[in-house]
């Protein structure tokens, strides 16, 4: 097996063939995604616990979030997931230019998401709807409304960091695609970041109703 005749540039020495390498990489990525779910899982637990204790306050506080902007952002992220999938499709049919275009579109959507998020944050900072001891807003009835905003900022903030991280990697993939490094024979890295991007999207799809819709 060590003497496999065709030895493509991307095949590392300790794998016996490209299929084994690809399977391993994908399996590894799924495990990594599992750790991400558990990371956010801790925060969802904190959310559930405090919501159960201060149901009223959570309801009142969630009204302060902007549902319209939240909905727009949800659609933007779902669309970016679509363009990400289309980029992978582009590589599968060996159309690298098309793939690059879709990767670019994914980056643009991600950026729009962050800009909208920025305006939401800006507005809250202005009103003093801030986490913990920085909370100065008085318009939310109920005990300890700062807890809601702590959870809101930590959850959306951590999610935002994941968006930024994803954007950096997608940008690297974009450069590599333009350089012709990927083809229908080898595009594992793009496929992996695609999986990651869908997960980040999925987490938002849970964050949005919990924080914006039901409180």
């Amino acid at each position: 097996m060590a003497n496999t005749p065709s030895h493509p540039f991307y095949l590392q020495h300790h794998f016996s063939d490209a299929q084994q390498q690809k399977d391993s990489a994908k399996f590894g990525m799924w495990i990594f995604l599992l750790t991400e779910i558990l990371l956010f899982g801790g925060l969802f637990c904190a959310y559930a616990v405090f919501r159960a204790w201060n149901h009223e306050m959570f309801y009142n506080a969630h009204l302060a979030l902007d549902r319209v902007l939240g909905t727009i952002n949800t659609f933007i992220l779902i669309t970016s997931s679509l363009t990400m999938a289309l980029a992978i499709r582009g590589l599968q049919v060996n159309k690298a230019r098309q793939a690059a275009l879709y990767l670019g579109a994914t980056l643009v959507f991600a950026a729009i998401f962050l800009v909208i998020k920025y305006f939401e944050y800006e507005h809250k900072i202005h009103l003093g709807q801030l986490p913990g001891k920085y909370y100065t807003y008085t318009g939310v009835a109920g005990t300890n409304p700062h807890i809601f905003f702590s959870i809101y900022f930590v959850m959306t903030g951590l999610h935002g960091l994941h968006i930024v991280g994803g954007m950096i990697v997608i940008a690297m993939m974009l450069v590599n695609t333009l350089r012709g490094k990927y083809s229908n024979e080898y595009y594992t890295p793009v496929e992996l970041i695609g999986l990651y991007w869908h997960l980040v999207d999925l987490i938002w799809i849970y964050l949005f109703p919990f924080l914006y819709l039901i409180g």
Binding site: L38, G41, P131, G132, K133, S150
Partner: peptide
């Protein structure tokens, strides 16, 4: 391990920003 990570992040945020999740004085 990811659950420990997020717990420690919350603890650090608690110390730096006083977010109040674990602080009895803040609910």
């Amino acid at each position: 391990t990811p659950v420990l990570s997020i717990t420690l992040v919350l603890l650090i945020l608690e110390r730096v920003f006083g977010i109040g999740i674990f602080d009895p004085a803040m609910g």
